[in-house]
Simulated scan of single mutants.
Amino acid sequence: MSLAALVGACASTSEEYPSLAVRDAERAQGQFYTGEPARLDVPPVDVDLAGGLSARLAALVTAAEEAHAEFVSVEPRAARLVAAAGDRGSDSWAAAQVALAELDSARSRAAIPLGDLDMIYTATRVAAQDTSDIEAARNRVIALVGEEDAALEDLRARIR
Score class of each variant (00 low, 15 high):
Asp91His: 03
Ala64Val: 02
Gly115Thr: 08
Leu53Tyr: 03
Ala151Tyr: 01
Leu53Asp: 04
Arg109Trp: 02
Ala79Tyr: 08
Ile159Tyr: 06
Asp46Ala: 13
Ala157Glu: 10
Gly51Phe: 12
Arg56Gly: 09
Val47Lys: 00
Ser19Ala: 13
Gly146Ala: 11
Pro18Gly: 11
Ser54Glu: 15
Glu66Val: 07
Ala123Gly: 03
Val98Arg: 09
Asn139Phe: 05
Ala157Tyr: 07
Glu153Ile: 05
Ala11Cys: 10
Leu117Arg: 02
Leu49Ser: 02
Ala95Lys: 07
Pro113His: 05
Gln29Tyr: 03
Gln29Ala: 15
Pro76Ile: 07
Arg160Cys: 05
Gln129Trp: 08
Ala11Lys: 05
Arg88Gly: 11
Leu57Arg: 00
Asp130Lys: 06
Asp133Asn: 12
Ser73Glu: 15
Gln31Leu: 13
Glu16Gln: 03
Leu49Gly: 06
Ala99Cys: 00
Thr122Val: 14
Ala110Asp: 00
Ala9Thr: 07
Thr122Lys: 02
Asp154His: 08
Asp116Ala: 12
Ala25Thr: 07
Ala79Asp: 10
Ala96Arg: 01
Val45Arg: 03
Arg56Leu: 03
Pro43Ala: 14
Met119Arg: 13
Pro37Ile: 01
Ala28Leu: 14
Thr34Lys: 12
Pro44Thr: 06
Leu40Trp: 06
Ala106Lys: 01
Ala83Lys: 09
Ala28His: 05
Ser19His: 01
Leu155Ala: 02
Ala95Cys: 04
Gln129Ile: 08
Thr62Asn: 12
Ala137Gln: 06
Asp118Asn: 14
Ala106Trp: 00
Pro113Met: 06
Asp130Arg: 04
Thr13Tyr: 13
Ser108Asp: 12
Asp46His: 03
Ser2Gly: 09
Leu152Tyr: 09
Val22Leu: 15
Ala28Ser: 11
Asp154Ala: 12
Val7Ile: 15
Leu57Thr: 11
Arg27Ser: 11
Asp87Tyr: 07
Leu81Asp: 01
Ser105Ile: 09
Asp133Ser: 15
Gly35Pro: 04
Ala110Ser: 02
Ser2Ala: 12
Leu152Asn: 04
Ala136Asn: 10
Leu155Ile: 09
Gly86Glu: 03
Pro44Tyr: 05
Leu103Gln: 05
Glu70Phe: 05
Thr34Pro: 10
Ala85Met: 01
Asp48Tyr: 03
Ala94Asp: 11
Ala55Gly: 04
Cys10Gly: 11
Ala123Ile: 04
Leu6Glu: 10
Thr34Ala: 15
Thr13Glu: 14
Ala67His: 00
Phe71Asp: 02
Leu20Val: 06
Val45Leu: 14
Asp24Trp: 03
Pro37Trp: 04
Tyr33Ile: 07
Ala11Ile: 11
Val61Asp: 01
Val145His: 00
Ala143Cys: 08
Ser14Val: 12
Asp118Gln: 10
Ser132His: 09
Val45Ser: 09
Arg80Trp: 05
Gly8Lys: 07
Arg138Gly: 02
Arg27Pro: 07
Glu153Ala: 09
Ala96Val: 00
Asp149Asn: 10
Met1Leu: 14
Val47Gly: 03
Ser73Thr: 14
Ala78Trp: 00
Ala28Asn: 10
Arg77Asn: 11
